[in-house]
């Protein structure tokens, strides 16, 4: 199976519907429609990634990547990976074609554009899940792992993004660029980090909707019931 198919197969439909503000099950004709758009979106992906692994030391709000000589400042992040000895940084993207197609549809068929945008978000999540799993599979000696954490979460500033990009030459190696405001282009791109844990952690992959730990109390995507 190609990587593109694996990514498509891994998509969580519930995520797509959540991005599309569906509060209840949508009827069959719409489900068929969403599936068709998802399939089309799947043909537009150009997946690319970069993985960095390094030993870390954690001191208060400082996370130091030892060999890479890089220091990240964040209380939330330090707390999230507390006890960890190694850190994996992953940059992943689905390329530019999705974005152009969304713009295309916005000009003639905004409904399809909106659905495609949601499908693209679900696809990049699926890709991240695959990459996260590959790290875990390659390191069976590690007892547990943290969940994913990204620049911009909590007090880990978005400017961390630039630190990582410059240090690891992420633009050249993945094609992801940073805008002036440190946002990633293409938009369907993610940088995430996971660390090892000295204790067993639940073997789940991906976003566990730990919205309760997020400071964005008003986020429209905040999962209820946390």
């Amino acid at each position: 199976m190609t990587l593109e198919q694996t990514i498509l197969n891994g998509v969580d439909r519930n995520e797509i519907y959540r991005y599309l503000s569906a509060k209840r099950k949508v009827d069959d004709s719409w489900q068929t429609y969403v599936e068709a758009v998802l399939e089309e979106t799947g043909t537009l992906i150009l997946p690319n990634q970069l993985m960095i692994e390094d030993a870390i030391s954690i001191d208060a709000n400082q996370v130091k990547l030892i060999s890479s000589e890089l220091q990240l400042t964040s209380e939330n992040f330090a707390d999230h990976i507390k006890g960890g000895k190694r850190l994996w940084i992953v940059a992943a993207t689905l390329g530019h074609l999705i974005e152009r197609k969304i713009k295309y549809y916005f000009a003639v068929n905004p409904t399809r554009a909106v659905v495609m945008d949601a499908c693209g978000s679900a696809l990049i999540e699926s890709y991240c899940d695959i990459l996260e799993r590959s790290i875990k599979d390659a390191h069976t000696e590690v007892k547990g792992f943290t969940s994913r954490f990204s620049p911009g979460y909590g007090d880990l500033s978005l400017t961390t993004q630039r630190q990582l990009f410059e240090r690891f030459d992420i633009s050249k190696r993945t094609g992801i660029h940073l805008s002036e405001g440190d946002l990633m282009l293409p938009q369907k791109s993610v940088v995430f980090m996971i660390a090892d844990q000295p204790v067993d952690t639940p073997q789940s992959i991906g976003c566990q909707h730990k919205c309760a730990s997020c400071t964005l109390q008003h986020c429209i995507y905040r999962t209820e019931g946390m």
């Binding site: 519907y17 503000s21 569906a22 209840r24 949508v26 409904t111 909106v114």
Partner: peptide, 17 residues
């Protein structure tokens, strides 16, 4: 209908179109 969750975003947009 969108506000009370009877329809979802693509339906709102399709009506708009």
């Amino acid at each position: 209908r969108f506000e009370n969750g009877t329809i979802f975003l693509p339906q709102l947009i399709q009506s708009a179109e």
